[in-house]
Amino acid sequence: MKETLRQLYAFSVPSLLLLCAASLAVNARVLLSAYWIRRPLSPTLHISLSLAAADGFASAVLAAGLTVNSLLARWQHDQCVLLLLEALRLAGVIITVAHLLALAANHYLGILRPLHYLTIMTHRNTAACIAALWLLPTFFFFAYFSFVPDQGFQSPECHYTFLRQYKFRAVFSSLFFGPLLLMLLIYSHIFVIVQRHQASRLRFSRMKYVQEWNCPQKKRSRQMARNVKAVYTTLLILGSYLVALMPAVLIFVLYCDDCLYPLPTRTNERINMFFIFTTVNFLVILKTLINPIIYAARMHEIKAATKRMNATVRGVCCQRAAGRREAESEAGGGAGSSSEATQLRQLSGSAGPSSFRMRSLRSPSRNGSLRASARRTSGLRHEQIGVAL
Rank of each mutant, 00 (worst) to 15 (best):
P262S: 08
N281H: 11
Y241F: 14
A311H: 11
T278W: 08
A304S: 07
L254H: 03
G239H: 08
R266H: 14
Y255E: 11
C256F: 02
L245C: 10
Y261I: 15
M299A: 05
P262D: 01
V313C: 03
I276V: 14
M246R: 02
L289G: 06
L242P: 00
A230F: 04
N291A: 06
V253Y: 12
I251W: 08
T233M: 11
Y232E: 10
A248D: 03
F277E: 08
K307R: 15
L260N: 06
R270S: 04
L235Q: 12
I294W: 05
R266E: 13
L289K: 01
F282R: 00
M273I: 02
A244F: 00
L235A: 09
L263A: 09
S240H: 15
V253G: 05
R266L: 09
L250Y: 00
K307T: 13
L254R: 01
L238A: 15
A248R: 05
P247Y: 00
A305V: 03
A244V: 04
T279C: 07
L236R: 07
V231Q: 09
K287H: 15
K303W: 06
V243R: 04
F282D: 03
L242K: 03
I271N: 01
I293Y: 09
N291E: 12
F252A: 09
L250S: 07
A230S: 10
I293S: 07
E269F: 09
T288A: 13
L263T: 10
T312G: 10
C256A: 13
A304F: 04
R270M: 10
N272F: 11
V253R: 15
L238C: 12
A296R: 11
D257V: 04
I271H: 03
A305I: 01
L250A: 11
V284H: 00
P262N: 04
V313I: 15
V243T: 11
I285A: 07
A244K: 02
V316E: 14
N310H: 14
P292G: 03
L254C: 06
I237R: 04
L245H: 12
I237T: 11
L260V: 14
F275Q: 02
L242W: 12
T265F: 07
L250H: 02
V243W: 04
A230P: 05
T234N: 15
Y255H: 09
T267L: 13
A296S: 12
Y255W: 10
T312D: 14
N291P: 03
I293D: 01
K307V: 15
L250G: 04
I294S: 03
